[in-house]
Simulated scan of single mutants.
Amino acid sequence: MNKLAAKAASALCTLGLSVALATSVYAAVDRDAIIDRIQPHGNICVAGDETCGLGAPAPSASAGASARTGEEVYNRFCAACHASGILESPKFGSGQMSARAAEKGLDGLLATSISGIGAMPPKGTCNDCSDEELEATIQFMIDAE
Rank of each mutant, 00 (worst) to 15 (best):
I114D: 07
K91S: 05
C45Q: 09
P90R: 05
L54A: 09
K104T: 07
S62C: 06
I35F: 07
A33S: 15
L109H: 11
G70T: 01
Q96S: 08
T125G: 09
A56F: 04
I138S: 13
A63W: 00
A79M: 12
G55P: 01
G116M: 02
E50Y: 08
G42H: 08
V73T: 01
G55I: 00
A56W: 04
F92H: 05
I86H: 03
P122D: 12
G70Q: 02
S130M: 13
C126M: 10
A65F: 00
A61M: 06
P122C: 11
S115H: 01
G105R: 01
N75G: 10
C81N: 06
A102E: 14
C78M: 10
P40D: 14
Q39M: 14
C81D: 00
S94Q: 01
G55N: 06
D32K: 11
R100M: 07
Y26H: 14
G42R: 08
E133C: 11
A58E: 02
Y26L: 15
G55K: 03
D107E: 13
A83Q: 15
S115C: 03
P59H: 02
T23K: 05
L21G: 13
I34K: 10
R68G: 00
Y26C: 15
A56H: 04
I138M: 13
E71N: 10
Y26Q: 14
I34V: 08
E132Y: 08
F77D: 14
A22I: 01
S89T: 14
A27F: 08
D131W: 11
L106K: 13
Y74E: 13
L134I: 15
E88T: 08
I117C: 05
A61N: 07
S98T: 04
I35R: 09
A83G: 09
H41T: 12
R100I: 05
A83I: 15
I138H: 12
G108F: 05
S89P: 03
G116E: 02
T137D: 10
S98K: 04
K104Q: 14
N75P: 08
T51S: 12
G48I: 00
L21M: 12
A58Q: 03
R76P: 03
R68S: 03
Y74V: 07
E103A: 09
G70M: 00
C129N: 09
A111E: 12
V46R: 06
L87C: 05
M97G: 02
Q39E: 13
P90A: 05
E72N: 05
